[in-house]
Design a protein around this nucleic acid. Structure first.
Lengths: 206, 206
DNA sequence: GGGTCCTCCCTATCAGTGATAGAGAGGAGC
DNA sequence: GCTCCTCTCTATCACTGATAGGGAGGACCC
């Protein structure tokens, strides 16, 4: 099987799923491809370019095509769905947010921005407003998933002890966390609630 | 001069300022301190702990003390100021956002959250609402600066060419950028505008 | 005073990383 | 048949974070 960019990226993502971003080394990837590591440098100028290609692929998986809202659909709901798909893309692979945030000038990301901004303008927003809204939603989503994705589950160590001390020092934060995740709520709900605040606005100030 | 954590962190930040996060290696840092690199491992268990300490120091610089709003101050203005200080902290050193986002369980960050949430609750917000607002503002700010801070200015290469192609593919995005940075506007204004949207709510939907 | 422990820094060394130089196999096209 | 081009190889670099284990020197106790 010939070695081309697409096959390299596909295998890189498999390796990423297995070992996380830090596990994606040129040697391990080459071994998986039945090849020696310098070979990769014929297809990619350096590792950063490879990571960028991975980022594009991750986005592509979740956005095979970009669709505008239906005529009856509220722009708020449509934009919220777009952000949710973006988050899903970032969550679909370990360190997804780190990877996408490290990839500069992503074409797919730009295409998403283009779609969102032009859609908002069709709905009557001025250029500047459209840009503000889209930028805010995108960067919030990235920041959210970045923190959400941090601690690769490596349980075992003294976790409760830290949590107890933490709760003593920051009672309100602690109360907020435990209050929030009470019945069947998940981080997904948290994201949706925050996203709604960004898009629809915060609750009336008391 | 005795070597202690504080002196190591101070010198690490000087090195960070000079060479960026990737330039902060144990050897370079040790050389600056007049010491050999394994010595650092007596003071820090590993490099991640060092980076976390750097993150705490970066936040500490900008938040030597945490102050609540005055009785007449709108919570929106106070919270906006808090986020602005957070952004300033992240921007004060190269890769600041990367560093802080990579540091897990930052105590200073938790202290900031605690202050913000309890302040909002004093102003009448329910626990859950306070948490949503604070979380959203924090993660948005992190995401914003993370992207803002990306391209370490390394000009020279074919930059205009890319921009031209970019503009052809994504006209609305391009128009938004050029429209925005017209007269004396800067990224600071962009951040403030986005932040206002998060805190005060988006403009009335057309 | 003498012994013992602890703190702090050292030398030597490891495995692993991204990356480059330069050789060579093998097919395409003239 | 020759030449070029595409692709992969071996060999090697400079560096990285990290560990093992030794030793100087002060603190502290008998």
């Amino acid at each position: 099987m010939a070695l081309d960019r697409q096959r390299i990226v596909t295998e890189a993502i498999a390796l990423l799923d297995a070992e996380g971003l830090d596990g994606v080394t040129t040697r391990k990837l080459a071994t998986r491809l039945g090849v020696r590591s310098p070979t990769l440098y014929w297809h990619f100028p350096n590792k950063a370019a490879l990571v960028t290609a991975i980022a594009e692929e991750i986005l592509e998986e979740q956005f095979p095509e970009l669709t505008r809202p239906g005529p009856e659909e509220r722009w708020q709901d449509w934009l919220s769905g777009l952000a949710t798909r973006l988050r899903r893309a970032l969550l679909a692979h370990p360190d997804g947010a780190r990877i996408v945030s490290a990839s500069q000038l992503s074409l797919k990301m730009a295409a998403i921005s283009e779609l969102a901004m032009s859609t908002l303008m069709e709905r009557g927003f001025a250029l500047r407003q459209a840009r503000l809204i889209v930028l805010t939603v995108e960067r919030f989503t990235l920041g959210f998933v970045l923190e959400e994705q941090w601690p690769r589950p490596e349980a075992g160590s003294g976790e409760d002890l830290d949590l107890a001390a933490y709760g003593a020092m920051f009672p309100t934060v602690m109360a907020g966390v435990t209050d929030y995740f009470q019945p069947g709520r998940t981080v997904d709900d948290l994201f949706q609630d925050c996203l709604r605040m960004v898009i629809e606005g915060p609750p009336a100030a008391p």
